[in-house]
Write a protein that binds this DNA or RNA. Structure first.
Length: 597
RNA sequence: GGGGAUGUAGUUCAGUCGGUUAGAACGCCGGCCUGUCACGCCGGAGGUCGCGAGUUCGAGCCUCGUCGUCCCCGCCA
């Protein structure tokens, strides 16, 4: 690559490439940026100059400067240049309505070539898109694309808006450690070896949970943090190993205080960033109702198609599959797909059947409602009375399609809940621009873990039980509801939190039920339990996943579109090539040896 | 850990039944061009068909393995 490039000297920009309009006609401007495209007509050269503000057409005309025009012939895409010139309205009929700056162009008097480039591995202008592998390897080139940059501008605005809201409400931004203690509950930890204390390890935080609660004990009263969190679990389109939470904690309040703050925050940021009004208070739904009606603890409320329990009628049918499911304590539930009977072919129904069996359900029954009967493989098991009864429960009309799953309650809910989403996706009935917020409240405090053979905390072991359920704690702990709440947006869990236990004796009782001995509890988080003894105020908190929130706001398919330097689905960074092997000497210094295969 | 998809020029893709010299578009290089904005026209260069075995007279195509990427299940308090 040639090194004959110009120096900046005392040139300073006067504008960015997105800010010029007809109002600037006649002014001398100085722009800097990248060559986004060139159209060299011989004696006239047009260049699209791009910076993060936008794109401006600049013109090299020998009538303006022979020397500069001559110099401009060598310009190529992605070269970095600076130009001085005069803003001019476009000739009549030459305006470009597709460009925000399409009414003007800049006639260049002076040109500096600030840098050249090798031929880029893919076209930044996006004319031919590259594979994501390549775009991740050359992430800086992809980030030059205006569409992607816009995501990060919005992300910045979201964080600014949140900080403003929380600062206004008396919150203090405090940083908590990255090098912290491994807690075996929850997700797998990323471990960091200690050189000073060989054989011991820090863990990167899965969340600042214990530290923020200790800040409440410390009397900080209202804390927040734009907190990076780390979880060593397998990735998904909506899961990265490091991600950012807006994490907060409040003293002397409960769920109402926390929910009110988040509602104000959401209202603010959707207004400032997207110019959209959202209605508060955000509606609430208890966990059990969400499961009953949507088969899911984070229902997408942008469409209906709710689950209906048809166990009563199923019990009166002659269909053994239904009756067996009921006899073993299961249920029969159904969804109604309006006017889909004609469109859902046997092939599609087979696909849907496979879809639910992949989720562990035993099968899928379907009924097409026709004018006076059912078209269905299971029609023969129902008498006329039951047919009318079921039609009534489902509010089914001719042309509708019923999809039915009979299974254990948990399996049926999950399968139908997912099927509901799948069908809605296939039908394209989900309104893209809709914003459907929902609080899901009163989750179960505990659930039985089949693998471990013991009760586990659904949220985390410091979540407070509902006071009115306390009496159930001893005899039927699984029925106890938690003072926990999740914020759901368009079927995505964007955050969650709870009122915490601040009473040591209740905390002890919970540990006992979880089968955690005093010794084990002390070993795992003794420092935190110790803190609870010294005047812990009542407190509650919540965290929302910033990446997921921004992803929804910008309509991103994957979190990778809202994280500047994301990891691949095998948790590696294609740009830096992390993770990588390290020098033997580095390991030795840490007192670490690698196991051979 | 499991299932699915995918890998061919710098990039995105096509490549028939296994058969002669692996094509197109964009990009790149050279030339022409004073109103382009997906500029146009003429010419040109550019290939480890992801990698490794195997089957075959012959493999981009078939088989096995392996690696990368993407999606999903498990997992993610």
């Amino acid at each position: 690559m040639s090194t004959n490039i110009d120096t900046l000297e005392n040139w300073e920009r006067t504008h960015d490439c997105g800010s010029l309009s007809a109002n600037n006609a006649g002014t001398e401007v100085l722009l800097m940026g990248w060559v986004n495209g060139r159209r060299d007509l011989g004696s006239l050269i047009f260049i699209d100059l791009r910076d993060r503000g936008g794109i401006t057409q600049i013109v090299f005309d020998p009538k303006v400067s022979v020397v500069t025009h001559e110099k401009a012939h060598v310009l190529r895409n992605e070269w970095v240049i600076a130009i001085k010139g005069k803003v001019s309205p476009r000739l009549k009929g030459q305006e470009n309505p597709k460009m925000p700056t399409g009414d003007i162009e800049v006639f260049v008097t002076d040109l500096k070539i600030l840098n050249r480039t090798e031929v880029p591995p893919f076209q930044v202008d996006g004319a031919v898109d590259a594979s994501e592998t390549l775009r991740l390897k050359y992430r800086y080139l992809e980030l030059r694309r205006p569409r992607l940059f816009e995501n990060f501008r919005k992300r910045h605005q979201v964080v600014s808006s949140i900080r403003e809201c929380l600062n206004r409400n008396g919150f203090l931004e405090v940083e908590t450690p990255f090098l912290t203690k491994s807690t075996p509950e929850g997700a797998r930890d990323y471990l960091v070896p200690s050189r000073v204390n060989k054989g011991t390890f820090y863990a990167l935080p899965q969340s600042p949970q214990l530290f923020k609660q200790i800040l409440m004990v410390a009397g900080f009263d209202r804390y927040y943090q734009v907190a990076r969190c780390f979880r060593d679990e397998d990735l998904r389109a909506d899961r990265q190993p490091e991600f950012t939470q807006i994490d907060l904690e409040m003293s002397f309040t409960g769920e109402e205080g926390v929910m009110a703050i988040f509602e104000e925050m959401m209202k603010d940021l959707f207004k400032t960033v997207l110019g959209k009004e959202i209605a508060i208070p955000i509606p609430r739904m208890e966990y059990t109702e969400a499961m009953d009606r949507f088969g899911c603890d984070r229902p997408d409320m942008r469409f209906g198609m709710e689950l209906k329990d048809i166990s009563g009628i199923a019990a009166r049918s002659d269909f053994n599959v239904f009756r067996q499911a009921l006899e073993t304590g299961g249920c029969v539930k159904a969804i109604k797909v309006e006017n889909a009977a004609a469109d859902f072919s046997r092939k599609i129904l087979d696909e849907l059947s496979r879809f639910v069996s992949d989720l562990g359900a035993k099968g899928l029954a379907w009924i097409k409602i026709t004018d006076n009967e059912w078209q269905s493989p299971i029609a023969k098991f129902f008498n006329q009375e039951n047919i009318s009864g079921l039609n009534k429960i489902m509010d089914a009309r001719p042309g509708d399609l019923l999809l039915i799953v009979a299974d254990k309650i948990k399996v049926a809910n999950q399968a139908l809940g997912m099927l509901r989403l799948e069908v809605a996706k296939r039908l394209g009935i989900i309104e893209k621009d809709a914003l459907s917020f929902l609080w899901v409240t009163r989750f179960p405090l505990l659930e039985y873990d089949e693998n471990e053979g013991r009760l586990q905390a659904v949220h985390h072991p410091f979540t407070a039980p509902l006071i009115e359920d306390l009496h159930l704690l001893k005899d039927s702990p699984e029925k106890v509801r938690a003072r926990a709440y999740d914020l759901v947006l368009n079927g995505v869990e964007i955050g969650g939190g709870s009122v915490r236990i601040h009473d040591m004796s209740l905390q002890d009782e919970i540990f006992k039920i979880l089968g955690i001995t005093r010794e084990a509890a002390d070993r795992k988080f003794g420092f935190f339990l110790e803190a609870l003894k010294y005047g812990a105020p009542p407190h509650a908190g919540m965290a929302i996943g910033l990446d997921r929130l921004v992803a929804i706001m910008v309509g991103a398919e994957s979190l990778r579109e809202v994280i500047a330097f994301p990891k691949t689905s095998s948790a590696s960074c294609l740009m830096s090539d992390a993770p990588s092997i390290v020098e033997e000497s580095q390991l030795k210094e840490l007192g670490i040896g690698l196991l051979s295969e």
